[in-house]
Computed example of a mutant assay.
Amino acid sequence: MNVENRVIELVEEKIAERPDLFLVDVQMHGGGLLTVLIDGDNGVAITDCVAISRHVGFHLEEENTIEQAYNLEVSSPGLDMPLKSLRQYQKNISRSLNVKLIDGSKHEGKLLAADDSGITIEENIKEKGKKASVIQNVIPFADITETKVLVSFK
């Protein structure tokens, strides 16, 4: 079993009794950096990150899963991190997104819905010399290369 799969098991074991938390990503980087990203329906507290870090670190050390020195970082994804899971999309319904597609096009709009097949966003389309129109755009996940939440300071 590779390191990332074992870490996924350990994180899921630790958050099993916390249905509000979910795993976003696990990556073993070169140079011995192991990152774990978790998120929550209502955010993630530092105490959650600490508890998961201690649980994962303890078991990795006990099992000698990683033979070389490593650094374990457990955190929530920052605002600049792309969305990776359906649950992250669902958590961000009603927020504005920037969506990049495989064909190179970009779409910006309010997230209205997200399900297993894709997302629905509400976009303001502005044409020169015309009044802006609002459309609903359904975008399959297979067409999306990256989605980021737009931060509003209103």
Rank of each mutant, 00 (worst) to 15 (best):
H59W: 07
Q90F: 05
F153S: 03
T145W: 03
P140W: 00
S85L: 15
K128H: 06
N98W: 03
S94K: 15
A132S: 14
R95F: 12
S76Y: 00
H107I: 00
G78L: 00
K126L: 04
F141M: 02
H55L: 03
H29R: 12
E73V: 15
S105H: 11
E9Y: 02
L111E: 11
D20F: 05
G78N: 02
E17D: 14
C49A: 11
S96Y: 13
I52H: 07
E73K: 15
A16F: 04
G129I: 14
G104V: 06
S76E: 01
G30E: 08
D116E: 15
T145Y: 02
P19C: 03
M1F: 10
S96F: 09
P82I: 08
E73M: 11
G30C: 01
N137Y: 02
E62Y: 00
V149P: 07
G30Y: 04
D25H: 04
R54N: 15
G40Y: 12
M28L: 15
G129T: 15
N71E: 14
G57Q: 12
N2W: 04
G118W: 14
I144L: 06
H55R: 10
E123S: 08
V26F: 05
N5H: 13
E62G: 01
E12M: 12
V24K: 08
N64S: 11
S152M: 04
F22P: 04
G40H: 03
E67Q: 13
R87I: 05
V151T: 11
F141W: 10
G43L: 00
G57A: 14
A51M: 05
L97H: 10
Y70E: 04
T47M: 07
P19W: 05
H107Q: 07
I102A: 07
P82K: 02
T145S: 08
S85P: 01
F141V: 04
L86N: 11
G40R: 05
A113C: 00
I46S: 09
S96C: 02
G104N: 15
R87C: 08
F22N: 03
D80P: 00
D20M: 06
L111I: 09
A16Q: 14
T47V: 09
R87L: 06
L72Q: 04
D25C: 03
K14H: 14
I66F: 05
R87G: 07
V56W: 01
L60T: 13
T35W: 04
H29V: 01
V7P: 12
L150R: 12
N2Q: 12
K106Q: 13
S96V: 06
M81G: 00
E9K: 08
K126T: 14
T120S: 08
S53Y: 07
N71Y: 07
I144R: 08
S53C: 10
E73R: 15
R87F: 08
V44M: 04
E108M: 06
I52E: 02
E13H: 11
D48G: 13
I119M: 03
S94L: 10
R54D: 14
E17Y: 06
D115P: 02
G109N: 12
V151N: 01
Q88P: 11
I102Y: 05
L10M: 05
N71K: 13
V7Y: 11
H107S: 05
K128F: 10
K154D: 12
L23C: 11
P82W: 12
Y89N: 12
V56R: 13
N42W: 09
I93E: 10
R54S: 13
K91V: 08
V36Q: 09
L97Y: 11
I125R: 10
V11M: 02
E4P: 05
E127H: 06
P19K: 07
G31R: 09
